[in-house]
Design a protein around this nucleic acid. Structure first.
Ligand code: FES
Ligand code: FES
Lengths: 148, 148
DNA sequence: CTTAACTGATACTATATTGATATCAATTAA
DNA sequence: TTAATTGATATCAATATAGTATCAGTTAAG
């Protein structure tokens, strides 16, 4: 069971790159090269993130993408929802005859409880937090390349 | 993002049926009909569960499947691992140049922390617990069919 | 005012995973 | 002997994931 798929993974990397270059535009090409992300694939992900107002773009020469939303406001939960759909454990595990009373179904409650736990765990992880963690790690271990 | 796939879902239902009929054999056919599970699909799941010593089978007329392992010892985490592979958030999100020190990588730590939270949440849910919850619900709401 | 570096939009292909079905041999209770 | 069953596989269909290609439109810079 793989929780994060490539698109979410790539989106996180791209956002970290943009967050590090906050205020200036960065082309899809340079992000792709820097983070080993398939170029055309990345471009689609970036456009999707524009639609969700996470980033903005500028067309033409010296154009590119720039952070729009505060990195501390972008959670992994949001990114999962954008690229993999809403986190849900199971639609409805048992057929109606068994769970006559869907609203009060204990099984359903159990499922929903887990759903909210999973969601809230991923909500704790923001792009801002990841970036700070990364920068701290690079100070401790300066031989590693920086993200920008 | 769908956490439980059909095979895990069906396996849970089948185990609940067998747990309720503890001590006697139940055919794949009757489980399939009772729980609206595609018959041949279910048979493969049952065989997989035999291989993992969760259940046992008896061949021939009046044969079938019977609970082997204590239902309280069967967790949803185990079933996810059997049918969907081990829960893992992300193999390794960033390339080596960035995470020069893989063992101490903060991002990796974050990922592993979430992995263990997800796993432990599903570990709290056992077949035994689900069955008791279900029986309790049916007492409160006796118009619903029983699981057995 | 032309050109090259860009994004916007979308169509397409390949591969893997998930979900489901089919077949036939072996076993066994009646 | 027969019908109800499991064991073991093979096959297929649908969907999701991953990646590629193309072309039109925009714009900074020479
Ligand atoms: S599991 Fe679906 S209503 Fe109870
Ligand atoms: S994310 Fe892979 S080692 Fe840090």
């Amino acid at each position: 069971m793989k929780v994060l798929t490539k698109n979410t993974d790539y989106a996180i990397r791209a956002l970290l790159a943009l967050a590090a270059k906050k205020g200036s535009y960065m082309s899809a090409k340079s992000i792709a090269i820097e983070h080993d992300i398939p170029y055309q694939f990345l471009r689609r992900l970036l456009q999707e993130m524009i639609r969700h107002n996470l980033i903005v773009s500028k067309e033409g020469v010296r154009g590119g993408f720039m952070m729009q939303k505060d990195p501390d406001e972008i959670t992994v939960t949001q990114l999962i929802e954008i690229f993999q759909g809403k986190v849900q454990v199971s639609e409805c595990m048992f057929r109606k005859q068994i769970c006559g009373n869907r609203a009060n179904c204990v099984l359903r409650h159990e499922i929903m409880r887990i759903e909210s736990v999973v969601q809230s765990e991923f909500e704790k992880v923001t792009i801002g937090k990841l970036l700070r963690d990364l920068e701290a790690a690079n100070q401790v271990n300066p031989t590693a390349a920086t993200i920008s």
